[in-house]
Structures are given as C-alpha cells and as structure tokens.
Amino acid sequence: MKNILVPTDFSNNAYNALFYITQLLKDTHCTFHILNCYDGRTKVLTKKGGEPNEKELPYALRVDSKEGLVKTKHRIVLDTGYEKHSFESISKKGDLIKTVEKLIKDLQIDLVVMGNKGITGAKDIFLGSNTTKVIHAGLACPVLTVPKEIDFKIPKNLALVTDYKNCISAEQMATIIEIAGISEATIRVMHINEKERLDKFETSNMNTLTKYLEEIDHSFHWMPKFSSKTEAIQLFLEELEIDMLIMFHSEHSLMEKIFGEPVIKKITFDIELPFLVINLPK
C-alpha cells in the first residue's frame, strides 16, 4: 500500500483512524492523503464566535478546512514521526463520495481509512452516515473503518467472514494478505453454516481462497446458523479474540444481508474493532 486516503471532519474519531493506520503501516513507505470535504451544511464559526452570514460562508468554510488540515498534519507528524511516511493535505468543496471516487482514480489510492462515526456520531449506531455512504458507494479500493475508543495494537487475529458465494480475485485479496503479512497475523475464515454442504461453485471459491492463503497462517471455521447472522459473527469475534473484521461487499453479498437485517436483530452488532471492507465489482 503506497497511497492511503483518510477523510476527516476533524473529530477525535477521524484522527484516531489516521493514527491507527500510521501505526499499522509504520514500517511501510507510503503517503497519507488527508482529505476534508465541506459544503454549505458544514458547521463553522467566525473568529468572533458567531456564525458567518451568507456572503462570508464560502470563505469561512474554505479557511476553516485549510486551517483544520494544517493542525491535523502537524499533530500526526508530532505523534508519529516515522521517516517512511509523508502527508498531503486536500481541502475540497463538494460531495464526499464524488470527491473520494475521483481521488481514488487520480491518486491511485490503495486504501480509504475512516473513523466509524463522525463528529455528530451517535453512540448507538455501528457506522456513521458518511462512513456507511462510503462503504455502500462500491469504491474501487478497500475501506477500513476504525472505532474511536480503541488503542492501537498489532492485529494478530483477522476474521474473514464469507459465504463463498463470490469468486474472489488475487487483487481483491491483496490488501488482506498485506495486512496479515505486516502484522504476522492469522486469518480466521468464518462461514455461517446455513446448509449441510457447499455447492460446486461455493466449494470452488473456498478452494481458490485456500490457495491465496497458502503462505499465511490461517484456519477455517464453520459457525452454526443463528436466528441472526450478526449474532453468529459477534460470538465468533469474541470467542477467537479477533482484532480486525474483514468482509466482502457487493450488491447481494453477506454483508448486504447483514445491513438489511431488522434493527432488533443487529442492534448488538456494535463491533469495537477495525472493520475492513473489500468491494467487489458489480
């Protein structure tokens, strides 16, 4: 991974995501592109403490964005100081998703990293609205979300949750393999046992995944079917002391099914773990 995009709203949660990824990649040569997107709905105060009027707003938003980026860059350099890292600041007016999509293409971004809740994030939701939008946008690169309250520790146990219904390419596995290699981690592949046996297509996909993991310490696990998939995943994460959750995302993926479960079933899906989403082509 050479180019990392880290959107920020200058919240503690956003900064924690930036700090986490710098720690994870501390021995890797890479550039962190710190992005702040703003529009007319972004809250900003004048130097006098009041809200700017309509004429002052565009200028105030631009200044607030650039000043926030300067402070963030200064803070992360002081907090880390790794010689292999460089930081670039990007201030953009406009829609977050469209901006992220364009930057992924223009800067050849390898990974997008975000806090899992923004500056107004409620405590009772798993992912904040902006983070959810970014994940569901089906970006051309993986997305890593990081909880606010966690202290960094090297992820030694990675949970890859799959239903084997998608044929995964080596390119789509690359980020997972790289993180596992950097961390000298074990990948725990989890499958929810919804039927007695896999069909031919699912078996082929499992065999392909096995080949990708040949040089990585790994294990395969079959979880019994619960009334809620989130309940099964939650139990697995706790029992195996997982440090990072990984899922594939596409229109009809297991992850989409989980997001589509009734609120009463997924209310406990409050995972305080880094969550890596690998987007699959539509």
Rank of each mutant, 00 (worst) to 15 (best):
F236S: 05
R75E: 14
H29R: 10
T46Q: 03
T46S: 07
E256W: 02
M173I: 07
Y82A: 07
P224K: 05
D199F: 12
S253D: 11
L235A: 14
D64T: 00
I258S: 09
I179K: 00
Y82S: 05
S183P: 00
L103W: 06
T46Y: 02
N53S: 06
P7I: 04
T186G: 07
I97H: 00
Y212T: 06
F259E: 05
I125Y: 04
R62L: 07
E261H: 03
K225G: 06
D124T: 10
E261G: 05
G94D: 07
P155N: 07
A170Q: 09
N16F: 08
I97V: 15
S86G: 07
T162C: 08
T175F: 01
I90V: 13
M255L: 15
E251G: 10
I150K: 11
I109W: 02
L24K: 02
C167H: 14
F236K: 03
I76H: 01
G128I: 05
S204F: 12
P155H: 05
H136T: 14
E88S: 11
A180S: 12
Q172C: 08
S91M: 06
C30M: 09
P147V: 02
T145P: 01
R197C: 03
N12A: 12
E54Q: 11
I242D: 02
T203H: 11
Y212N: 09
V263P: 03
T230Q: 05
A17S: 13
S11F: 15
G121P: 04
I177F: 04
D106V: 10
H29F: 13
P58F: 03
I150N: 09
D199L: 11
D151C: 08
D79E: 15
H74F: 12
V134H: 02
D243I: 13
E256S: 12
M255T: 05
K55A: 10
I271V: 14
P281V: 11
P155Q: 06
H191Q: 08
D110N: 14
L57K: 05
E196K: 10
L245G: 00
I21H: 03
L18Q: 04
P142M: 04
L209W: 05
N12T: 12
E215N: 13
K73V: 15
G128S: 06
L127Q: 01
K165Q: 15
Q234D: 15
N193Y: 12
L45C: 00
D106Q: 14
S169P: 08
K47N: 14
T80N: 06
I278P: 01
P274K: 01
